[in-house]
Every structure is written in structure tokens, then in C-alpha cells.
Amino acid sequence: MRWFWLIGFALALILAGVYAYLGGFRQPEVAVITTAKPIFLAGRYYNGPVRGDEFGTLFRQAQQVKANNHLQGTLGNIYYNDPEAAGDTVKAFIGLIVADTVSQNLPPGYHYSTFSGGQRVVQARLKASYMLAPGKLYSGIKDFAKQQKLGLGQVYVEQFPDTGPVEVLAVVK
């Protein structure tokens, strides 16, 4: 019985270490900013259940497009609603954030979407794994907006760079 507790404690320490390494104990930096320039995304639109097979497939396809150098950019998404508030239905544009809309040829089935510059947004940034960051970033945005008495629109932009912090922008009403 004693060995069981020692092994359980050792496993808990290892899991806590991995969680810390992935950034799980870090808190996001949150601020209100005005976007300086537009953000261009190359990808595909999705409207359906969050747990839908096609939703996950679009993320994997964007990763594959990047890995195969079909497009140069940063993994990113624009959400046009809050899935929690919309009953588990998501409206999103999933793909890669690119520098412009003219310097690269798009893969078949891909098209452009733009998040306009000059918008007032709540920006949350966190140096953590893309698997852990979104939950922390969204809760950080919502807590910050509540504290600052800011209304949020239904548009969110996520950016998952290879290096540096993961970022979510939420439009302020």
C-alpha cells in the first residue's frame, strides 16, 4: 500500500512538471489595444458543431499546408461567435495568418478572410502550449472585460506562432 502512494505521488510530480513546462501555471498578459493593421488569413470557413469531425480536420489541414510549405504563415483562426454562448455551434475561419493577399498562391479550396485594422480589442498573450493556452486566454479576456466593464463583440482572432506567445484578440463593442 505504501508503494502505491509513493508511485502515485511520483506520477503526480511528473505530471505537474510537464504541466508547468507547457505553461499551465502561467497567467496571460491582458490589455486593451487598437490593432495597427489588418490581419489576413488564408484558409477555410466552418459553421457547425465544435465537436464535428470536419472542424478538427480543418485544423489538421492548416497544419499540413504549413508543414508542406504550401503557404508561409502562422496558424490562426477567426471565430465569429462564442461557441459557449451559441450552444456548441461555431462559426470560424481556420487557416494561416499571412503577410498579405498577393505574394503567395493559395492551395485548392483556400481563400482569404480579413480582420480589419484600427479595431479596439482586448489582447491576451501567453507563452504556453497551444493545447493549454486558449482556455487560459479566453478566461483572461472575459475576466478582464468584466473588471474593466467592457462589452465584447462576438469576433475573436487566435494566433499560434511557432515561437513566442500564443495570442487571442477579442473585439470590444
Rank of each mutant, 00 (worst) to 15 (best):
K37I: 04
L96D: 05
A85Q: 12
T35M: 10
P165R: 06
V18I: 15
V30W: 03
G24W: 02
G8H: 05
F93H: 02
Y79W: 11
Q154K: 15
A145G: 03
L71A: 00
K127N: 15
V166T: 11
G24Y: 07
G52F: 02
T163I: 09
G24H: 08
H70M: 15
L106R: 03
A128L: 09
V168H: 09
T101L: 05
I141F: 00
R2C: 06
Q72V: 09
A16D: 07
T74G: 06
L132Q: 05
V102L: 11
V32F: 04
W5L: 15
Q64S: 12
V30S: 05
R120D: 05
I33P: 02
L132Y: 08
A36W: 00
D100T: 07
G118Q: 07
Y130V: 13
G164M: 09
L126N: 00
P83D: 05
V102H: 12
L11S: 11
K142Q: 14
Y46C: 03
S116L: 14
Y79S: 01
W5C: 12
N77C: 15
Q154M: 08
N105D: 13
N47D: 11
G48N: 08
L58M: 10
R60L: 11
R44Y: 03
A20N: 09
V157D: 02
G24E: 09
I97R: 08
V18E: 01
Q63E: 13
L6V: 12
G87V: 08
S116Q: 15
Q64E: 14
Y138W: 11
F4D: 12
I97F: 01
E29Q: 15
G109Q: 06
R60A: 14
A42V: 06
G117T: 01
L6H: 11
T163D: 15
K149C: 00
N105V: 10
T114I: 14
I141L: 08
V171S: 09
S139H: 06
Q123R: 10
G118D: 08
Q63N: 15
G23D: 00
A133M: 05
Q64T: 13
P38I: 04
Y45W: 11
L126C: 02
N77Y: 09
A67C: 06
L71Y: 07
K142V: 07
G24C: 10
I39L: 13
N69Q: 12
M1K: 13
Q27T: 14
P107N: 03
I97G: 04
E54K: 15
G76M: 03
G48W: 06
D53M: 14
G140R: 04
Y112D: 02
R44W: 01
Q148T: 03
D162L: 14
F4V: 10
L13Q: 11
I97S: 04
L71D: 04
A10G: 07
A16S: 12
S116T: 13
P107F: 01
E167F: 04
D143S: 15
V50N: 06
V122Q: 03
G8D: 09
P83F: 05
N105P: 01
H111Y: 13
Q27M: 13
G109S: 08
W5Q: 14
L11A: 13
